[in-house]
Lab assay of single mutants.
Amino acid sequence: RSRTTFTAEQLEELEKAFERTHYPDIYTREELAQRTKLTEARVQVWFSNRRARWRK
């Protein structure tokens, strides 16, 4: 699998969701996946990476 490139629109959606919760449940992730046209797995990994960046 090659590296996922996120569009500005996708990042906006993901960042907005991250402001609400750092640990979205499966329903939230599924909804985000549909809205951003990404897979739920990509959304999950993005949140994991985003939390790592947030901790630094």
Rank of each mutant, 00 (worst) to 15 (best):
S2F: 09
S2D: 14
S2V: 06
S2A: 11
R3A: 14
T4F: 13
T4A: 05
T4V: 11
T5K: 11
F6V: 13
F6W: 06
T7M: 07
E9F: 08
E9L: 07
Q10C: 04
L11S: 14
L11P: 02
L11A: 06
E12D: 13
E13H: 12
E13C: 13
E13F: 05
E13V: 10
E13Y: 08
L14H: 03
L14G: 01
L14W: 00
L14R: 03
E15A: 04
K16Y: 06
K16W: 09
A17D: 03
A17S: 13
A17G: 08
F18H: 00
F18V: 01
F18G: 01
F18A: 01
R20M: 14
R20K: 10
R20V: 13
R20W: 10
R20E: 12
T21L: 05
T21K: 05
T21G: 10
T21V: 10
H22D: 03
H22F: 00
H22P: 12
Y23R: 04
Y23I: 03
Y23C: 02
P24A: 05
I26C: 11
I26M: 14
T28V: 13
T28S: 07
T28Q: 13
R29G: 00
R29A: 08
R29Y: 05
E31K: 11
E31G: 06
E31C: 10
E31V: 08
L32M: 06
L32I: 07
L32W: 01
R35F: 06
R35Q: 06
R35G: 03
T36G: 01
T36F: 06
K37D: 06
K37T: 05
K37E: 06
L38Y: 04
T39Q: 01
T39W: 00
E40N: 06
E40G: 10
A41Q: 11
A41C: 04
A41N: 11
R42D: 15
V43F: 01
Q44L: 09
Q44W: 05
Q44K: 12
V45R: 07
V45F: 07
F47H: 01
F47T: 00
F47S: 02
S48H: 14
S48K: 15
S48R: 12
S48D: 10
S48E: 13
S48Y: 08
N49P: 04
R50Y: 03
R50P: 00
R50S: 02
R51K: 00
R51E: 00
R51W: 01
R51Q: 02
R51N: 01
A52R: 08
A52H: 04
R53L: 14
R53A: 14
R53E: 15
K56G: 15
